[in-house]
Computed example of a mutant assay.
Amino acid sequence: MAIAVVVLDHHQDLCILRQHLVKLSTPLAGLQSVGPGETPFDQVEVLNPQLRQQRLQKAMAFWLVPFGFFAGVTFTVMTNLDTFAFAGLWGNRLIGGLLGLVAGFLGSFAASSGVDSSNEDRLRQLRNRSEEGSWLLVVESRAGQDMPWKDLQRVRPQAVVAL
């Protein structure tokens, strides 16, 4: 899947290009307009690595938290440790499970922090252009589909940035 961001001067150019791209014979995976009256820059996941990191952290927590709990209980049972003897046999296992749960939750943060930031300079340039009043059109092609580069140049944009 290829992603390109088209930077435009006028809202009218954005509307014309968006309508043209919607009518293509091979449909695109996604079109998202960014600018005043459209989607704000910070709410577009492709343009905001923090949103991607939050989504990944939630997905990782969904799997790591329960796994951490069961791993903590299993470890406590297998090693037969009495670390929390005051809590009794089942309390000791439960505390071990809760500690594993916390470890899984912290692990989801560590795993999600590895979001690719290779496009930081390009994203900073796009943010600056957006703050200057330019309109952005985020174009996503389907897997195995070529980006319609000629069609993107149709309204003579300021720039076309590949991400």
Results as ranks from 00 to 15, higher is better:
157 P>L: 10
118 S>W: 08
115 V>R: 08
135 W>M: 10
19 Q>W: 02
125 Q>T: 13
96 G>A: 06
152 L>C: 04
13 D>S: 14
99 L>V: 09
41 F>K: 02
137 L>K: 01
74 T>R: 06
52 R>Q: 12
75 F>T: 15
25 S>M: 03
85 A>M: 12
28 L>K: 02
151 D>F: 03
147 M>Q: 08
156 R>W: 00
63 W>I: 13
9 D>S: 07
45 E>M: 07
11 H>Y: 05
148 P>D: 09
85 A>I: 12
96 G>P: 03
88 G>C: 06
86 F>P: 01
47 L>G: 07
159 A>T: 02
67 F>L: 15
90 W>N: 04
153 Q>D: 15
62 F>S: 04
154 R>G: 02
86 F>I: 15
45 E>P: 01
150 K>D: 15
1 M>A: 14
49 P>D: 03
140 E>G: 00
135 W>I: 00
102 V>F: 11
23 K>L: 12
134 S>N: 13
27 P>R: 05
144 G>H: 07
118 S>M: 03
95 I>E: 02
23 K>Q: 15
122 R>F: 09
50 Q>M: 07
82 D>T: 15
53 Q>R: 15
141 S>D: 05
87 A>C: 09
62 F>K: 10
100 G>F: 02
60 M>P: 02
51 L>N: 05
48 N>K: 01
100 G>Q: 05
127 R>E: 12
26 T>G: 01
31 L>A: 01
26 T>H: 13
110 A>W: 14
156 R>Y: 04
47 L>N: 00
162 A>E: 14
141 S>G: 13
140 E>T: 09
124 R>F: 00
153 Q>H: 14
22 V>G: 05
108 S>A: 14
65 V>M: 11
24 L>T: 14
48 N>V: 11
70 F>Q: 04
86 F>S: 14
144 G>P: 01
60 M>L: 15
100 G>I: 05
85 A>L: 14
148 P>R: 06
151 D>P: 03
105 F>G: 11
125 Q>H: 12
112 S>G: 11
20 H>I: 03
58 K>T: 06
69 F>N: 02
10 H>G: 09
157 P>E: 05
161 V>F: 10
122 R>G: 11
28 L>F: 11
24 L>R: 14
108 S>M: 10
